[in-house]
Design a protein around this nucleic acid. Structure first.
Length: 902
RNA sequence: GCGCGCUUAGCUCAGUGGUAGAGCACAUCCUUCACACGGAUGGGGUCGCAGGUUCGAAACCUGCAGCGCGCACCA
């Protein structure tokens, strides 16, 4: 017996193996390799982020794919890195600055502030990288990238310049989504619509040419009333025809504004009349453009009222001002009523406050290669899984809006545009900037600053983080204009694994960028993971505090336990409910495997008997039905796994591995062959059994390796399946099955024998339990009408069933009331002196008879149905007939026995 | 409003036309020399509802309900 502890202790083992893999350069990809390439780029986590369960799921899947690909003989590149995450990172540093030094970023100035962010990044950055290592991720760390590396930054600028010169990027004054907390524009994707309980205010504006006559208007935003420049009605709305072209008084500041007609107005909604505030609503802005209306901005960037003409509102927070404006209307007798109203309000994804539509000067991108990108998914060049996400992708691609790519932040890639100082004022306020301005020489757009830098001022804005992320698959592999061996070998990448929440942010954009800048799709397969929820079905979030720390999980259950537990409940489609119990199961599974190996080690080394049986030729010849059965099941497992990997069915793979080891190998096979390892066993039996165990265990460890890399590596070494100095993770999966040289018929015969013994053992244990002798191992069993081959396996049956002795006796006359079971190997009696209870046995048998009768009736009814006979496939009919025969035989036997009881 | 998805045992989920499954939880028994992070046995389901197709439906079709998620300029 080995000195190994009884329970597996993962912590030290996991750390040891990760270090060994790094030392052995096992994760490093070789572009010069002859092997076919397999590549994944990691979805770069936020550089200052910390690992959450979403990362664990996502990266475990990638690691499984990468490790499996290595086993399949591929040259694997899993390229890691981190994202600078503009808003999130800047916000963190600003918060720290505010809390510790009571300073804002403007107090420090751009240069000093950026220095602080870099310091912060050095200090807190890469925590997540070490956490990914703890999880066992086999990334090629020698190629780690950061989206603000110099070379990467050059890519971002290059892309901007190219697209600008192509006319795809332009600057313009538009309504954008403004975050009043982060003080920057956001893209449409960064706005989250949330249902809100709001109020709908009904108010009335007096007609200038008809005092006492009013036009009724409804709005949810009375606080922007000062920015009203018109009232719009639908031209098809007969109620308002007479007003169109006239003017009404805006209450404050008191001024006449026109009543206009515009198709956009919904006749059904509210009063049917809409106040037009072009500065604070996207639709209003467009109506304003159509009708040539002025724009009056009445909000500060921080979303406070900016309207000195109305002193009692000026300077107020927008929501305070809303109530105040309503009160003011009421005072003036212009408020008709207020209704409760449910609507959707856009929130800033990062800051969590309602965004404010705001006019501002921003840079926009017209997406390139839209058609190619849409087609690539539609025609299957890029496979999206689960497939239904392809529809979401297609829908978005069909409704693309220009992308607002500028951000009023400092942390990020600064826009590579310079303005001539002497023309700065004019350029700053120009309604639009594009190629024409570039050609005139007033602006400079380039990767490098203009030569006479002093005469120029650089655009202050930075780019949306996703404007760097969308280049990730190729910008990580080669510098601008380079054709590196890495790019050549590993681009396009094979699989992308990410969450469906960033299908627009990232996936779709990468596809477009791939086509535009590399002339090729960036990846062939996209696998969208499930969203992790808690047991109540709520989204995991820091604020809810329902997000367990993966590091805690790893401390408790091991990285392998966490990986396996999580993958085992990872569904193919919908959300995943995280249940810590499952991680415990993962740990238990690791422990089970570990103990199965300890058991094998107790068997010691294999000493071949003098007959000189060679492993290869002797194995099948000497094997019994249990050996053959487990080898066949192992082969089946390997085939099933290959298919499941092909379909990205990770939960099913985990389930099959679990079931094989626990049920098939430990519960059945090991129990069946335990006798072979006892001192009483023949040397031949011992050798065969140990060999079969080794064959199964070594192959199983390899199949399990992608899911539990550390443990399988450890056990493979300890068991001697992998030589010291070599790695299981580098061993290729053999293509041949472990079982060979047996005809399908012979295999079926052997497997049926094994199944019959297992089933019989189950029946007997059941019988023992029913008669309350489950714990006794000395009971005697008698088999009547035994199948011919039972004799050779009766020892095993006794072992499995927990019987002291099994007698084969075809003439056995059971005492009345002897418990009996009908099994695939014959009638088995459990003669128990003093325990036999005729009445109880009668009841049990009557119950069993009733059960079979029911089955018989059902089957007979089916066969009596002419349509069934006529239309069902022959094999189904045959199956049914066979069942009837079986039921009848059993019923006859049981009735006879019941009669025997008297 | 449009679209997508889900609804199977107390819980988490498999099961895409042929007698309803797994794990956990539960109950009873077992500390027998791999493992109590274990072993054995057992109880538990009109497969959301209603129609339809079919010899046969948990599965296919239609409708409905509940839940979830996207998208959308109804102020």
């Amino acid at each position: 017996m080995s000195d190994l502890p009884k329970a597996y202790e993962p912590q030290a083992v996991e750390a040891k193996w990760y270090a060994a893999w790094i030392e052995g350069k096992c994760f490093e990809a070789d572009p010069a390799s002859e092997k076919p390439a397999y590549s994944i780029v990691i979805p770069p986590p936020n550089v200052t982020g910390i690992l959450h369960l979403g990362h664990v799921l996502n990266n475990t899947i990638q690691d499984i794919l990468a490790r499996r690909a290595r086993q399949e003989g591929k040259e694997v590149l899993w390229l890691p890195g981190t994202d600078h995450a503009g808003i999130a990172t800047q916000a963190k540093v600003e918060r720290e600055l505010r809390e510790k030094e009571k300073l804002t970023r403007r107090d420090l100035g751009r240069e000093e502030f950026l220095k602080r962010v870099w310091d912060f990044k050095e200090k807190h950055g890469n925590i997540i990288i070490s956490q990914l290592k703890r999880l066992g991720c086999s990334c090629d760390w020698s190629r780690e990238r950061f989206t603000m590396d110099a070379a990467y930054t050059k890519w971002v600028s290059h892309v901007f310049v190219e697209l600008f010169k192509e006319g795809m990027i332009y600057r313009g004054k538009r309504i954008v989504n403004w975050c009043p907390v982060s003080l920057t524009a956001l893209s449409d994707e960064e706005v989250i619509m949330k249902p809100q309980r709001s109020k709908l205010y009904y108010m009335k504006y007096e007609l200038t040419d008809a005092p006492g006559e009013f036009l009724e208007i409804s709005t949810t935003r009375p606080e922007t009333l000062m920015g009203d420049v018109a009232v719009a009605v639908n031209p098809k709305d007969p109620r308002f025809t007479k007003y169109v072209g006239r003017t009404v008084y805006r209450p404050f500041p008191h001024a006449p504004i026109p009543v206009i007609a515009d198709d956009h107005v919904d006749i059904e909604f509210g009063t049917g009349a809409l106040k037009i505030t072009p500065a604070h609503d996207k639709a209003d802005f467009e109506i304003g453009l159509r009708h040539n209306l002025p724009i009056i901005d009445v909000l500060t960037p921080e979303a406070f009222i900016n309207c000195p003409e109305v002193p009692d509102l000026h300077g107020l927070d927008r929501f305070v001002a809303r109530r105040k404006a309503a009160a003011k209307l009421e005072e003036m007798g212009l408020l008709i009523k207020v209704e409760e109203y449910d609507n959707n309000v856009g929130f800033s994804e990062r800051a969590g406050v309602p965004i404010e539509p705001r006019i501002s000067m921003q840079w926009f991108l017209k997406y390139p290669r839209v058609q190619e990108a849409a087609d690539a998914v539609a025609n299957g060049e890029i496979q999206i899984r689960p497939e239904r996400w392809a529809k979401t992708y297609a829908h978005w691609m069909e409704n693309l809006q220009d992308w607002c790519i500028s951000r009023q932040l400092w942390w990020g890639h600064q826009i590579p545009v310079w303005y001539r100082k002497d023309k700065l004022e004019g350029l700053k306020n120009a309604e639009s900037l594009d190629m024409a301005d570039f050609q005139s020489g007033d602006i400079h757009v380039g990767i490098e600053a203009p030569a006479d830098e002093a005469g120029w001022v650089r655009d202050e804005d930075v780019m949306d983080t996703w404007f760097s992320s969308w280049l990730w698959p190729f910008a990580t592999m080669a510098d601008v204009g380079e054709e590196t061996p890495t790019l050549k070998k590993f681009y396009p990448t094979t699989d992308l694994v990410t969450g469906p929440d960033i299908i627009f942010f990232w996936v779709a954009r990468m596809i477009m960028a791939g086509f535009r800048f590399e002339g090729e799709l960036p990846f062939k397969n996209v696998y969208f993971t499930s969203l992790i929820r808690d047991m109540k079905g709520q989204k995991m979030s820091k604020t809810l505090g329902n997000s367990p720390d993966p590091l805690d999980m790893m401390d408790q259950y091991g990285a392998d336990g966490l990986r396996f537990g999580l993958m085992r409940i990872a569904p193919t489609g919908s959300d995943l409910r995280f249940d810590e119990v499952q991680m415990e199961e993962g740990r238990n599974f690791a422990n089970k495997l570990y103990n199965a190996c300890r058991f094998r080690q107790m068997g010691g080394t294999i000493e071949f008997p003098e007959t000189d049986v060679e492993e290869d030729e002797g194995l099948v010849g000497m094997a019994n039905c249990f050996h053959i059965d487990i080898l066949a099941k192992l082969d089946e497992l390997a085939v099933d796994l290959t298919r499941a990997y092909g379909d990205y069915r990770f939960g099913e793979i985990a389930q099959r591995l679990y079931e094989f080891l626990w049920s098939e190998f430990c519960d059945k096979f090991l129990e069946a062959v335990k006798g072979d390892l006892r001192e009483t066993a023949t040397p031949e039996a011992r050798v065969v059994t140990l060999s079969v165990i080794d064959t199964v265990m070594s192959r199983f460890l390899q199949l399990l390796h992608p899911y539990m890399p550390h443990l399988t590596e450890e056990l493979s070494l300890n068991m001697g399946y992998v030589d010291a100095g070599e790695f299981l993770m580098e061993a290729e999966l053999p293509e041949q099955p472990v079982l060979a040289g047996l005809s399908a018929d012979d295999l079926a015969i052997e497997q049926n024998k094994a199944a019959a013994i297992y089933e019989t053992a189950g029946r007997l244990r059941n019988l023992k339990t029913e008669y309350h002798v489950a714990a006794r191992r000395d009971v005697k069993l008698v088999v009547k009408g035994a199948v011919a081959w039972l004799e050779e396996q009766q020892q095993v049956l006794a072992l499995l069933a927990g019987a002291g002795e099994i007698l084969l006796d075809s003439t056995y006359e059971a005492p009345k009331g002897t418990p009996v079971a009908l099994t695939p190997v014959g009638e088995i009696y459990l003669p128990l002196e003093g325990l036999i209870d005729v009445a109880a046995e009668k009841v049990r048998m009557t119950r069993e008879i009733a059960k079979f009768e029911q089955e018989l009736v059902r089957s007979e009814a089916k066969l009596a149905n002419e349509s069934f006979i006529a239309r069902a496939p022959a094999e189904v009919v045959e199956q049914e007939k066979a069942r009837i025969t079986e039921w009848r035989t059993k019923l006859a036997q049981l009735r006879e026995m019941l009669e025997g009881l008297g």
